[in-house]
Design a protein around this nucleic acid. Structure first.
Length: 640
RNA sequence: GGCGAUGUAGCUCAGUUGGUCAGAGCAUGCGGCUCAUAUCCGCAGUGUCCGGGGUUCAAUUCCCUGCAUCGCCA
């Protein structure tokens, strides 16, 4: 059996909804898994959710839910997303799974027994509002920055993991295995960090402060905190210590993380494994961040532009292609709709899609829709074979994929696509088709192009599985036949001459950019009914508005008017304004409220009452909500 | 505040150990083809390789420093 391949994403913390970053990490894991499937290796692909901790307790409280119910809700959102991104998981783990909790306890006990966990007391400045310790630098004038209260000096005892004992071992391991952490920049970062003495890691919280966690097996008064709970999912998911999957897939494991959690995965986790007597992982693959360029996103989806929604507009495969092609693995990249469309048009529609279209169209036109049989002698004499180029492409692609250099792997495929476009230009099949004596040349040219497309269809499978299958069908093959198998792709002349090609298709339609308003509104198919955005204005335009905080002094209904209230306000001076908010606010509820008004709007009479300004409010279908400020401000304070 | 990373053509970025390394794609301009989703092919540019020092016969590439951006930690 070939070497197994086990790939993980971090388990995502359920204090936030899934976003582009989560999607990217999980998509590249899916791509890596599919690639190793091409290599005929057994694969296991794990992702999941991290659900314990005080942040979850607080988020749950805000939504008036139990931590469990809250975690269930957000975890379900993650689980629901992956199939929509064509992500093919082996297992979705949750840190609240009983099996996981058991393994966490087993490993904690094992390390405790071997003496690498100890109990210690310390004191620090604690804010009861935030439920956390602060150090003096974080305080503002000695006060908690959130609560403006003085933190209290309290003593607390906790359990600590003796990481320092393994510092030198880790340095040696990283030095001996140069690609243990990759790309290299992150390896260097970890080594730089390890030049300083490693502090022991606090791994518990007393239950007086936090109950939403896994109890320590050796002290029931505590729960374990963050890293022992979270990182252990990578082994618990396989059924450590005796599970069959653990025996098969560990330690053939590669982790994928974003750069923000380099330290826990590059330092804590290998040391935890070492201390627990478990072999360490093969590679830690670290990627960068997506910076979202709001200015280059169309506003067709309303005011919130969620990159994940773009897959519904432009298609999942193009979306996956863009993420893989655009980000240089390890570095930050920028994301915008404009760039996405540019990639789709240039790479997918013009290069690949048009190549596929022109080749299959010629096969129909010149060969009646049947795959021609090339004469090997003619092929060799006139150097018409694309086999060498295909072979080089597969080699370079494979090497890049093994290194997690996805952008380079994809580029290799597109280099080959470009070679095929040139090949058509040079061989000029439309000229050959006019000359009966050139028939063998034409057969060889079209066959080689079709065969090249077969290779391309296999190579794009990890990134664009649906498109790959579609190309296969249109080459007259059955996608169910593991067409992406790497050995099969290397074997030239995989297409049987004489077989029938289905009607040709346009794989990727070109996209108009910027979008035509009517077209996008229909395509967006979005429940958000926010009105279209107004044209851009300059800051100077904006500064013409005189927006002020005002306090409501008196409020009463305007006689005979259903919606109008007459307000006496203080905007630094006393004024009267009229507002159409009677449907949503009772006059008595507004007394003392702070609102935002346009103070330099030309006065107007409404139902006979002079209004000297206008208040700001969000006007919905049913209700209206007043704009206000989040803390009391003196009346007349300008807004900008 | 400490540690680290990044800063190269209008845009997005390649540049493995210092000496044809000043590049690619997109965008722009011009030319060619017609099989193809007005697609493809060819040609043409533009750059204080972030600023300032230093090492060297020679630095985008090494060292120091400043600025900007990002991440981690505090």
């Amino acid at each position: 059996m070939k070497t197994p391949f086990y790939i993980t994403t971090p388990i995502y913390y359920v204090n936030a909804q899934p976003h582009l970053g989560h999607a990217y990490t999980t998509i590249i894991a899916d791509v890596a898994r599919r690639f190793h499937e091409m290599c005929d290796q057994p694969t296991f692909f794990l992702t999941g959710t991290d659900e314990h901790g005080d942040k979850i307790v607080r988020a749950a409280r805000r939504e008036k839910m139990s931590p469990r119910a809250y975690a269930d809700k957000v975890s379900a959102q993650f689980q629901a997303l992956w199939p929509k991104l064509n992500i093919d998981l082996s297992r979705f783990i949750r840190t609240t799974d009983p099996g996981h909790q058991l393994v966490v306890k087993q490993i904690l006990q094992k390390i405790y027994d071997s003496g690498d966990i100890y109990f210690a007391e310390y004191e620090g400045l604690y804010c009861f509002g935030c439920e956390r310790f602060y150090n003096e630098r974080e305080l503002v004038d000695g006060l908690c920055p959130d609560h403006q209260t003085a933190p209290e000096l309290i003593r607390e005892a906790n359990y600590f993991f003796r990481m320092s004992r393994y510092q030198q071992w880790l340095i040696d391991h990283i030095t001996a295995h140069p690609d243990f952490i990759r790309p290299e920049r992150y390896r260097n970062e970890v080594l730089a960090f390890l030049r300083e003495p490693l502090e022991d890691l606090c791994i518990s919280r007393p239950k007086s402060r936090l109950q939403w966690g896994i109890s320590l097996p050796f002290d029931d008064r505590y729960v374990t905190y963050v890293w022992f709970d979270a990182l252990i999912n990578y082994v618990s998911a396989l059924g450590y210590p005796d599970g069959e999957d653990f025996a098969t897939f560990w330690p053939q494991v590669q982790h994928i993380v974003a750069k923000d959690i380099l330290k826990p995965h590059g330092i804590y986790w290998p040391i935890m494994l070492k201390a627990a007597g478990i072999p360490v992982y093969q590679h830690l693959n670290v990627h960068g961040y997506w910076n979202i360029d709001q200015s280059k996103m169309s506003k067709s989806l309303g005011n919130v532009v969620d990159p994940l929604h773009l897959k519904d507009i432009y298609g999942l495969d193009p979306f996956r292609y863009f993420l893989l092609r655009e980000m240089n693995f390890g570095l930050d990249s920028s994301f915008s709709e404009e760039q996405l469309v540019a990639r789709i048009n240039a790479d997918l529609a013009n290069d690949l899609g048009n190549l596929f279209s022109r080749v299959t169209a010629m096969a129909h036109k010149y060969h009646g829709g049947r795959i021609p049989a090339p004469d090997p002698a003619v092929e060799a004499d006139l150097k018409l074979s694309l086999q060498a180029e295909a072979w080089k492409t597969i080699e370079a692609y494979t090497a890049a994929m093994h290194e997690f250099a996805f952008h380079r792997a994809v580029q290799m495929v597109w280099d080959f696509i470009s070679q095929m476009n040139k090949y058509i230009d040079v061989t000029q099949p439309w000229v050959l088709a006019k000359d009966k004596r050139a028939r063998p040349q034409l057969d060889a040219a079209i066959y080689n192009l079709l065969e090249g497309l077969r290779v391309v269809s296999g190579l794009i499978y990890p990134v664009m599985p649906d498109t790959a299958a579609s190309m296969q069908r249109h080459l007259g093959l059955d996608p169910a036949e593991r067409f992406y198998d790497l050995e099969g792709l290397k074997a030239w002349r995989g297409l049987p001459p004489g077989s029938v090609l289905p009607k040709t298709v346009a794989l990727f339609p070109r996209i108009d950019w910027p979008p035509k308003p009517t077209a996008t509104a229909a395509a967006a198919d979005t429940p958000l009914a926010a009105p279209a955005f107004k044209p851009q204005i300059s800051y100077e335009d904006f500064s013409l508005l005189d927006l002020r905080v005002a306090t409501v002094l008196k409020a009463e209904a305007v006689p005979k008017a259903k919606k109008l209230l007459k307000l006496e306000i203080d905007v630094g001076e006393r004024r009267t304004i009229v507002a159409g908010i009677a449907g949503s606010y009772a006059p008595e509820d507004l007394i003392g409220a702070q609102i935002v008004v346009v103070a330099n709007l030309k006065p107007a009479k409404l139902m006979g009452v002079l209004s000297e300004g206008m208040l700001l409010a969000a006007t919905g279908e049913e209700v209206t909500a007043l704009a206000t400020v989040t803390r009391p401000m003196p009346p007349g304070t300008p807004l900008r």
